[in-house]
Write a protein that binds this DNA or RNA. Sequence first.
DNA 1: CTGAACATGAGAATGATACTCTCGCGACAT
DNA 2: ATGTCGCGAGAGTATCATTCTCATGTTCAG
Lengths: 226, 226
Amino acid sequence: MTEVSEEPAWRQRAVERSTRAAKLRAEQRVQRFLDSAQELIAEKGTTDFTVQEVVDRSKQSLRSFYQHFDGKHELLLALFEDALSKGAAEIRQAAYAKRDPMQRLRVAVEMLYEQSRPNPEVQRPLFNDFALQLLVKHPTEVATAHLPLLTLFSEFIEQAAEAGAVPEGKTRRRASLVMQTVMFTAYTSSVPGGQASPVTSEEVWQFCLGGLCGSPAKPRTSRTTK
Amino acid sequence: MTEVSEEPAWRQRAVERSTRAAKLRAEQRVQRFLDSAQELIAEKGTTDFTVQEVVDRSKQSLRSFYQHFDGKHELLLALFEDALSKGAAEIRQAAYAKRDPMQRLRVAVEMLYEQSRPNPEVQRPLFNDFALQLLVKHPTEVATAHLPLLTLFSEFIEQAAEAGAVPEGKTRRRASLVMQTVMFTAYTSSVPGGQASPVTSEEVWQFCLGGLCGSPAKPRTSRTTK
DNA sequence: CTGAACATGAGAATGATACTCTCGCGACAT
DNA sequence: ATGTCGCGAGAGTATCATTCTCATGTTCAG
């Protein structure tokens, strides 16, 4: 009785078909906006492009843009999530080339560090510019975008814990700490006036490693142990 | 021959006097802008106030504002530096109440963490909002503003190193790592949707502690082969 | 006290940008 | 054929930061 409902099945299918076609067209348009924005970012090295520029380059209209995106924010967010999840995938692949869980973790940290530092060469340099601007206005969404990475690091830490290389427990929060440290250090350490010699990925790794393994001497009051 | 110059001394002094008075007036005006901005920030919990609002509240004019500041960003920068250096002073004082260098460090980390997390209660919550917005546009200045804190942490780490509680070397860079970790973790961990249970200051401290003490178990490959 | 130089106030004008709205066209399903 | 719908073109609005104009103090040497 629930089968045919009031609508004949053929009608549903027909609607479904046209719907699908429409959706396809829409997605293509969206993709064109996305691609154009990506190009602009790569060219200008900033997210300071105007919506108009994106529209012009994609040979579509402002009308259309706002029909598909809630605003510039959403565009950026989409690119941001995409970049982060691709980055995570890249890291995952490279890391799984290692057998040792610690080596995996290390590779992950160092790769994330390199990915996250503003690099004029690579096309993937805008993690930061994105990240910080969004972090101010849409922290929740940023958290969402971070999820793939967070999951990845949790995974590795879990494995390392199972192998006995690091203590267990609080995996997710420790993963979060590591991520944060790596990403933000990457950003600020590449500021010209900041430090004579920027922090190296090696150093970041050592720092995180220590942080993960817990305090070596004693978690409590640290006195010179007699 | 370079002594008397062309100007009689009395003239110089006279000029100096009126100059001083003028400077004083200017400083008072600047201060009114600063205070008004601070109020607005405290009320709105954001740096999104408009210049016009600052001007209105300070009962001065746009004209005057731009005569004293290069733009809104200079105003923010001034407040930012001020806040950070006051925060650093506060921390320094509290930390020096402890004798043990490690306790000092710990107090410093935990206080910085609390200071840096967006706290609607306190009047000093805007470290972050400032920090991130500025970090995008004026990274160098931000680095400058961080200097008092960086110095402070370097100081403590140095002392801890002398006491043998942490390894020596690379003080400044490690201080930088600690600062970064603490401040940014404070920011993102207070995002509502991010984590069920936000990272505690205790956890941050443990993490930094480990990071500072170096990898406890296996220093492994560090033996250079350059 | 007085006049000139200078600082201020009031607020209009400009410029940049995100975002909306109106109109008309052309595709597509029925 | 016809009505719906997505879209292009581009004018229009809103919000800010920033600058400009003009008139009114305010200061200060003489």
